[in-house]
Design a protein around this nucleic acid. Sequence first.
DNA 1: TCCGACGTACCACGTACAGGGTACCCGGGC
DNA 2: GCCCGGGTACCCTGTACGTGGTACGTCGGA
Lengths: 214, 214
Amino acid sequence: MPTRAIAIEDDEAVSRLIAQVLTAHGFEMVGTAATGEDGIALAKREVPDVALVDLGLPKMSGEDVIAAIRQEVPKTMCIALTAVDIPARVLGALRAGAAGYILKPFHAGELARAVEDVLRGDSAPISPRAAKVLLAELRGDAPDQRNHGPALSKREREVLELLVHGHTYADVANALGIAEGTVQTYVKRIYEKMDVSTKAEAALLAVARGLVKP
Amino acid sequence: MPTRAIAIEDDEAVSRLIAQVLTAHGFEMVGTAATGEDGIALAKREVPDVALVDLGLPKMSGEDVIAAIRQEVPKTMCIALTAVDIPARVLGALRAGAAGYILKPFHAGELARAVEDVLRGDSAPISPRAAKVLLAELRGDAPDQRNHGPALSKREREVLELLVHGHTYADVANALGIAEGTVQTYVKRIYEKMDVSTKAEAALLAVARGLVKP
DNA sequence: TCCGACGTACCACGTACAGGGTACCCGGGC
DNA sequence: GCCCGGGTACCCTGTACGTGGTACGTCGGA
């Protein structure tokens, strides 16, 4: 049985192009829909192997469509298709359950390759631009991690490392062989440099920047 | 000034190949190293634009090398290079600060393209197989994680969310419309369930388990 | 039916924390 | 020479925090 696919895309030209490309690569198009509602109904009726979902649909958001399909028809893998790579969009789609994220315009081979990748199940096609967003999120948001204030000194990193793991000032002082008052100085400087004001915030930022291992 | 690159790779054949490919694409190779220690020293000395780091180095792990370079020479972007795509490896490297993740064997064009992508800064080259691991992690259905002790109630998660972002008990009380004393009860229960005793520890564990986004 | 488990809510006490000071040493410039 | 900035080190004060209590409603099983 050939791989069965559907497309949920409001631009009919794009929709036809998708059908053409996939058919040419040996997939079977079992339907297309122009709205989210129709697309979900189509997916439930046909239970295709893969669904190409445009994120720029009118009314219902592509994210919601993907989430609905993942919920109702888990067997169907969803690939998000969009012209924009706004971080919130990328993350929303992937969180919703998209197995891949392709940016328009795409090459014919790119699309077919992505579908094959997803179906094989051992990989997830993600455009480099989308991947950057993913990475940023994984590391703790903050667009462009680099150059966030002055670097911490070696001693300051030692203090931070101990602090964020729940040790008290007294513990830190003991471990480093300095007075508790001195620890407080380091903490103050660390807070200034990291622009935070509590241990909790410092801990969050520290892991986000990879200064300490969780 | 041309883009300056280094390679940290113990297999000399691969190392030469990298140099060859990058040189052919107009990059300047300013050094190669066969061990992590040498690589870090090289990076500090040359401060290259990009470093290709093999994850399968003897002795020192590639993750640690990347982390060290990101720490000491933030300007240098690191691209992880490996033959295996073990989830822990992928995540470790990306968490350590790798801007890209390329699987061996790679095509010549692929490598050059990845370096260009990373330097342009608007995208992150991630191999499809590595991307799959990333996605799984992002969605939280990664191996282990989950099921660490009793689950927090909705209210407790709300308190935790606010707490770990540095808000005081008073702030939390205000935001949730309850008394400060009540917040303390939640904090106690949260600490018990998570088996921690400070805000900093709770913050670490919360991000580690994906309960809150950093 | 009653009782226990759990989520919710509040108070009081002692301590650890955040932020205000001050001081010394060292290396690099003006 | 001199001062200046950054790293190191210490003290003091008010506050937020961690932990000990108590109490009430609800749900489900003994």
